[in-house]
Write a protein that binds this DNA or RNA. Structure first.
Lengths: 110, 110
DNA sequence: CTTTCATATCGATAACCGTCGATACGAAAG
DNA sequence: CTTTCGTATCGACGGTTATCGATATGAAAG
């Protein structure tokens, strides 16, 4: 049976080195100002073409492509190719999982 | 009136460069395997003495001290000195804020 | 005062990362 | 086939960072 989350909430018990490594990869993917803006732009719409993401960010096309790859490999974005265009959308499950892992409401006294 | 969160959820609207920068600082503080394990150890107890954190992590004392400083400066940990010992505890509000910013449940269709 | 011990800081090193221009790839259009 | 255009990859450069040993700081103990 599949696990529905990557690991226990960070508040419950010490993370194993393996869980910490995989969680860090996903957090690292978001822990950059340019990638955060890129991600939030994609998340704000239904689906975004890569061609529309260079201008609002003010970085070069290779840089956008690089960041999109990082976010996609971390599982936070989904990529779909249509013709010569690449469309990206948010993987809500992965984001919800990340949010849940950080949720401190499981701690006593909150 | 004070804002209760640093910024809008990443799913709602494009982050401003300033908001992205400040959010990235806090995410970056957690986006390291060693710091994640360190943080989860502190979060698992009521309060942790720095002297008890070196052994379970398997890194040197200066490295632990460095990571504790990073997490504290990001607002995720609180530090209290008692005698020659330093005690650390989780700032639940900061963690809850981080969790809320990533929460995708505001998106339609979830 | 001197010693001991917990913690922080310093300086160095190696690895990692964000960014770019140049270029390759691949699909549609002419 | 050739051109055009969107995207990905490459190679390089500069800045950041995780880690360590050595050392400084500062507080309690002797």
């Amino acid at each position: 049976m599949e696990k529905t989350t990557c690991c226990e909430p960070v508040c419950c018990s010490p993370l194993s080195p393996v869980d910490a490594e995989s969680l860090a990869i996903r957090l690292k993917a978001l822990a950059d100002p340019t990638r955060l803006r890129l991600f939030s732009i994609v998340a704000s719409g239904e689906e975004q073409c890569a061609c529309d993401l260079t201008d609002p960010l003010g970085v070069s096309q290779p840089t956008v492509s690089h960041h999109l790859k990082t976010l996609t490999e971390a599982g936070l974005l989904r990529r779909e190719q249509r013709g010569k265009w690449a469309y990206f959308s948010v993987n809500k499950d992965a984001l919800a999982e990340l949010s849940a892992v950080l949720d401190p409401s499981v701690l006593s006294g909150i």
